[in-house]
Amino acid sequence: MLKYILTRLLSGILTVYFIATVTFAAMHLVPGDPITGNKATSPEIRANLERKYGLDRPVLVQYGIYLKNMVNGDFGISFTQQNRSVNDIIRSHFPISATLGIASILFATFGGIFFGALTGISRKKIYDRSIMFGVILAISVPSFVFAAVSQFFMTELNQKAGTTLLPVGGWGGLSHMILPAIVLGLGTLAFLTRLMRSSLLEVVNQDYIRTARAKGLSPTRIFFSHQLRNAVLPVITVLGPAIAAITTGGFVVESVFAIPGLGRYFVQAVQQLDYTVIMGLTVFYGAFLVFMVITVDIAYGLIDPRIKVSARSA
């Protein structure tokens, strides 16, 4: 198991290095450079600025400096916001995104398991049909549509009620989190529902279920300690990609709900072409996602006893 963890971590570091390199290369493809602005600068000033920021050095040297900074955890300085380093931006806005992300991943996971189990065990076709149609709908409708429509209806509801039942934007207490967390988690919830359903249908026909039934266990007991426990495991494997989906989904949802999270800052940086922030945040997000996936994989290995065998052989 230790060997497995080490291999995964090593490959993760390699992937992050690759991500950093691609990011660097991509940003060097951008026509023009950050110094070329609206105002004409004299060649002397230009040369000074280039020396100051190391832009006059060969690309490989720049690449080396960039990698060194990244290793030291220095993601650069914003070009459009005064006195703001990317680290600063991450420090003050990432916790907000993380809080929202955790809330919506919890919503998506428990909701997905619940609805998946419901479709998997319900004898009535109508439940199965309607939930599965809802799933397809939730997968097909972009999150910004859900965001806008939920905002619209919440505003109407608030007006009808005469008070603010749920705020439709901004960031503050728990109440600010409910609507965006639901919208953000909806797509993932649908995806997990589908997965949970198919994995439950697979488990239902297993021999050990028949054995349990033959032993005379109650249906509730069979469901909770045999079917659900085994069916939930595949759901955990896709939590890595699910976290990625929710993180990138946050870009849009945070913008629509005016939440001062990192995603909204990333989108703003992209719109203002703030290259250093784009670069720094891309590497940060990339590293974050890679290690989230690894964490989920390792956690899965620890939870599922069957995985250890295949890990050793891998």
């Binding site: 992937t15 690759f18 991500i19 691609v22 990011t23 991509a26 940003m27 493809l29 951008v30 026509p31 990625a244 993180t247 990138t248 870009f251 990333f266 992209v270 072409l273 290259y275 784009i278 891309t282 997000y285 990339g286 996602l289 890679v290």
Partner: peptide, 20 residues
């Protein structure tokens, strides 16, 4: 494997900026 490891939407944005 390496290309697959790049977070898709994140790098869509990055490449879109880069290719301009």
């Amino acid at each position: 494997d390496f290309v697959l490891a790049l977070p898709f939407l994140l790098f869509m944005i990055l490449f879109k900026v880069a290719f301009g």
